[in-house]
């Protein structure tokens, strides 16, 4: 398995703590609606790098940064920052079919809205797990296209 690691400088990384998965395992199935991802194939321009791989890479690069922002926002009880980071990750997750991550981001966005951080920690922990499941699917889809 792998985890999201947040360093002292608040930079966030995905860290593999066991051998890398070659494909999405059964536990990760359903984390991403692959049909949504496949929908982008129609937009592929001839002679250009694979668009789906490009989108996956952008997502995998950006998502840990957004999680770090959310963790920081919760630590500082900054509802505005939590709402903005959650809103942004919700959009990109929904765009690529990571529905569970998007839904949890939606909940975190609302948590930030009413100023109550009671559930934010638990939601972030669940989101870390969902994000990891999504990452495994994305990694497998990426591998298929290379």
């Amino acid at each position: 398995m792998s985890i999201i690691r947040v360093d002292a400088d608040r930079s966030t990384h995905w860290e593999l703590v066991s051998p890398a998965h070659a494909g999405a395992d059964a536990a990760a199935l359903g984390a991403v609606d692959v049909a949504v991802l496949d929908g982008f194939a129609a937009l592929q321009a001839e002679g250009e790098p694979d668009l789906i791989v490009e989108l996956i890479d952008l997502y995998l690069e950006d998502a840990p940064r957004k999680v770090a922002s959310m963790l920081e926002a919760v630590a500082l009880a900054d509802e505005g920052a939590l709402g903005r980071a959650a809103h942004s990750l919700k959009g990109s997750s929904a765009s690529l079919g990571a529905g569970q991550v998007a839904a949890l981001c939606g909940e975190l966005e609302r948590t930030g809205d009413d100023g109550s951080f009671e559930w934010a920690g638990a939601l972030l922990a669940r989101m870390g797990q969902e994000l990891e499941r999504a990452r495994r699917v994305f990694a497998a889809e990426r591998q298929k296209r290379l």
């Binding site: 982008f40 321009a45 690069e61 950006d62 959009g91």
Partner: peptide, 10 residues
């Protein structure tokens, strides 16, 4: 958002 931006551009 980089993902939404690239998807929209495509």
């Amino acid at each position: 958002d980089a993902v939404s931006r690239r998807a929209l551009e495509a």
